[in-house]
Simulated assay, not measured.
Amino acid sequence: MPVIREFLPSDSTHVNALAAQAFEQFKDAYYDWPAFLAKIGNMSALADVGEVIVAEVEGQIVGAVAYVGPGAPKAEFFRPEWPIMRMLVVAPTSRGQGIGRALAQECLRRAKRDGASAFALHTSEFMQVALSMYQRIGFKLVSRAPAIHGVEYGVYVKELDD
């Protein structure tokens, strides 16, 4: 199992490179890949609005996610009271080892810590592996989100039990 820990400023370069690597397989889907890459390649900036969490295996960062709590600034297609998960990324060479699930579960734990009754994310249907994991965890499509550089996105929500 990976070690899940808080992001440190010294992790910025690794996290930014990891985000770019993780999305590389989808580059042909976005009509302006360079603009999209500039955005995702600065994943560490999410630490300004939320809690960035990293997963390490043998001292190497192999995954990361941003947890943005209730009331924190987020896209208007999310309800302000929903905590959300942004940019769940796993190194291509480390997929299939439960790293994404461990990061998602940590976000759900933080949502419960913050007293939330629901937790949200947005993703695209062509991100099949991630989407099926989210659905197994209990996320359900509730609405469409604006397209990002030509790629359709949906908003998924999981109701949280006490």
Rank of each mutant, 00 (worst) to 15 (best):
P146K: 08
S12E: 14
A47I: 09
F36Y: 15
L103D: 04
T123G: 09
A130G: 14
K27M: 03
E51G: 03
Q25W: 14
E81F: 10
Q60F: 10
A35Q: 06
A111D: 00
K39Q: 10
R86Y: 14
F26S: 09
S143Q: 15
G50M: 15
K27S: 11
E6K: 13
E51L: 07
V90M: 00
A38R: 06
E76T: 11
D114W: 11
F77R: 13
L18I: 05
I61H: 08
S124H: 09
G50A: 06
V89K: 02
W82L: 12
P34R: 07
A35E: 10
K74W: 09
I61Q: 05
Q25P: 05
A147F: 00
P9T: 13
A120N: 04
V57G: 11
N42R: 11
E106F: 07
P73Y: 04
A130E: 08
E81M: 08
Q97Y: 05
N16K: 10
D28N: 14
M127Y: 10
I53N: 07
G138Y: 02
R5N: 00
R110D: 01
V89W: 02
P9I: 11
E76Q: 13
R113E: 13
L141K: 15
M1P: 04
G59H: 07
V3N: 02
G154V: 10
K112S: 08
A22I: 13
L121A: 06
P73K: 03
A45D: 13
G41Y: 12
L131H: 15
A45W: 14
L131Y: 14
A20Q: 08
V52R: 01
V15L: 15
S117N: 05
V3P: 00
F126C: 06
L37I: 04
K112Y: 03
I148E: 14
C107G: 00
